[in-house]
Computed example of a mutant assay.
Amino acid sequence: MTFPSLIRALATIGLALTLPLAAARAQTAAPTDDLVAGSVLVRGRIEGVLLKHNGTTISRIGGYLDNSDSVTPEIDLSYFFTDHIAIEGETGLLHTTLTAKDTRLGNVSIGKVSSVPIFLVPQYHFLPNSRFNPYLGVGVAILPYFNAEAAGGLVRQLSVSNEVGTVFQLGIDYRVAGPWYANFDVKKLILSAHATANNGALSASGQVNPWIIGAGIGYRF
């Protein structure tokens, strides 16, 4: 065998050995910026909270409890257990103005209350290797309230109970460039509410089922 023939033979053998290894590596290696198993996605959003009454009733004076809409910042973190299954934890800061409407005394200002909503939502992501990655989630919503401020006048004291409910979520992540993602997200909360004023002289209870619509940016680690 001549030297050039030996070189060609060795090259052929080397190519035959390396091609299957390269193919296997290409099949198992995921793009580093995709949302796949082991990914951590941190997002920041601005959310609009549409808090309309839904069957709340007020003792003694009648009417219903109206909650003001608001805009609030939030931050969340999603961990991907698999390419499709993730769990998201979210928190923010919410300020709400309460008004008793259509009562026998007319419209009565109740006061203001703040809360730090906490959501824990398992999610299913449909297209982990796509630039567009829509997802659905159902989880738990916890609303611990604090800093309840009575409006004064007819309402001298205000207390709002902490609540636990259900959150339904629909959203989409869009990979903008590298590890950066844009996000649009809609949530529906199902929970009860209970508030008392003037040390229990007045009380309101019922369903408060707000829509939460948000948009923001995320970074994939």
Rank of each mutant, 00 (worst) to 15 (best):
V71R: 03
G92C: 00
L154R: 13
T99D: 10
L202C: 01
L143M: 13
W211H: 09
S192R: 08
N198G: 02
T12M: 14
I110P: 02
E163K: 00
D33T: 14
S205P: 04
R8S: 12
A182I: 08
I142V: 14
G92D: 00
N209R: 03
N107T: 13
L202W: 05
I58S: 06
Y64E: 11
V208I: 15
N129V: 10
I172A: 11
T57S: 13
S70M: 07
E74I: 10
F119Q: 12
L93I: 12
A151M: 10
T18G: 14
I142Q: 00
A151R: 11
S205L: 05
A148C: 10
T2V: 11
S159V: 01
R131A: 09
A150D: 06
F81S: 03
A201W: 02
K187P: 01
L93M: 12
T28Q: 13
L93E: 01
I142E: 00
E88A: 07
D69T: 09
E47K: 05
S192G: 12
E74P: 01
F126S: 02
L127D: 02
S5A: 15
T2C: 13
S115H: 03
F132A: 10
Y79F: 14
T18C: 13
G111S: 06
G214R: 02
N209D: 15
D76N: 09
T166R: 03
E163D: 04
Y145I: 08
E74Y: 12
A193T: 15
L6N: 12
V164A: 13
Q169C: 08
I61Y: 02
Y64P: 01
F80A: 06
R220H: 11
R8V: 06
G171D: 04
A150R: 07
F80T: 01
E163H: 00
Y145E: 05
T32H: 14
P210F: 06
T28F: 05
L93A: 06
P144V: 00
Y79V: 14
P144F: 00
Y124I: 14
Q207S: 13
G38K: 03
K52L: 10
F221L: 15
G106M: 06
P20N: 04
A195D: 09
T99I: 13
N209M: 02
A23H: 11
P179R: 15
V121K: 01
A182N: 07
L51D: 13
H95F: 08
S115N: 04
T82K: 02
P31T: 12
R43Y: 03
K101A: 07
Q27M: 06
L94P: 00
H95L: 11
H125T: 03
V208G: 03
V208C: 01
R60F: 01
G153C: 06
V176L: 14
D185E: 11
N147C: 09
E74R: 12
Y124A: 10
S109M: 04
I190H: 09
W180C: 09
L93F: 11
V42W: 11
W211V: 14
V164I: 15
L120N: 06
A22L: 15
R104Y: 07
L65S: 09
L127T: 08
F80Q: 00
N147Q: 10
L202R: 00
N162A: 11
I13K: 15
P179K: 14
I87C: 02
G171L: 05
L191D: 14
A177R: 12
T57A: 08
P122E: 11
A30D: 14
S205G: 09
H53D: 15
F119K: 05
A195C: 06
